[in-house]
């Protein structure tokens, strides 16, 4: 083979090798690290898998937050105004966690329909609504009452 073509072929082969390693790693890693989002209605209807790490989100139901005073355990319900799911969490809640605010939680459903969260995200702006939550509420036929006016959704 012509030396230049040979050189080019080596380069191409190197690139292909690198890319296939990358793609291999990606597929391997993706398999276990994709977290699907479910809204409270879906979870209540039993559409969400049990004991698989998922994301769930909605509004924190008014009057549902119960705090253990001796440990860092917190219990609350997340709702889309059609159905609500009990959530259990142990740890420090974000600054903007409050009743009537949108949250997204990461965790697993246990066998009793309870969501055990290992991470709770509330966004850093009182006007902000996580898009998943906004959509979940829209689907449930409720308008997201505290979605701010256009342009004020600054973030975290």
């Amino acid at each position: 083979m012509h030396p230049i073509r040979k050189k080019r072929l080596t380069i191409v082969l190197f690139l292909l090798a690198g890319l296939s390693i990358a793609v291999g790693l990606i597929t391997y890693a993706l398999r276990q690290n994709i977290n699907l989002f479910y809204d409270p209605s879906q979870i209540a209807a039993g559409e969400a898998p049990v004991d698989v790490r998922i994301r769930a989100g909605g509004m924190v139901e008014e009057g549902s937050v119960e705090r253990d005073t001796e440990t860092l355990k917190v219990m609350f319900r997340v709702t889309d105004f059609n159905a609500s799911v009990p959530v259990e969490y142990e740890g420090i809640l974000p600054d903007l966690f409050a009743e009537g605010q949108g949250v997204v939680a990461m965790g697993r459903l246990d066998g009793n329909g309870r969501f055990v969260a290992d991470q709770v995200l509330a966004k850093h702006d009182e006007n902000y609504m996580p898009p998943e939550v906004a959509e979940a509420l829209k689907k449930a036929g409720k308008s997201a009452t505290n979605t701010g006016p256009e342009g004020s959704a600054t973030t975290y």
């Binding site: 993706l30 276990q32 690290n33 994709i34 977290n35 699907l36 989002f37 994301r55 990461m106 998943e132």
Partner: peptide, 10 residues
Amino acid sequence: LGKLSIGEPF
């Protein structure tokens, strides 16, 4: 096609 997130472990 659905909402998902790819987290730190990936």
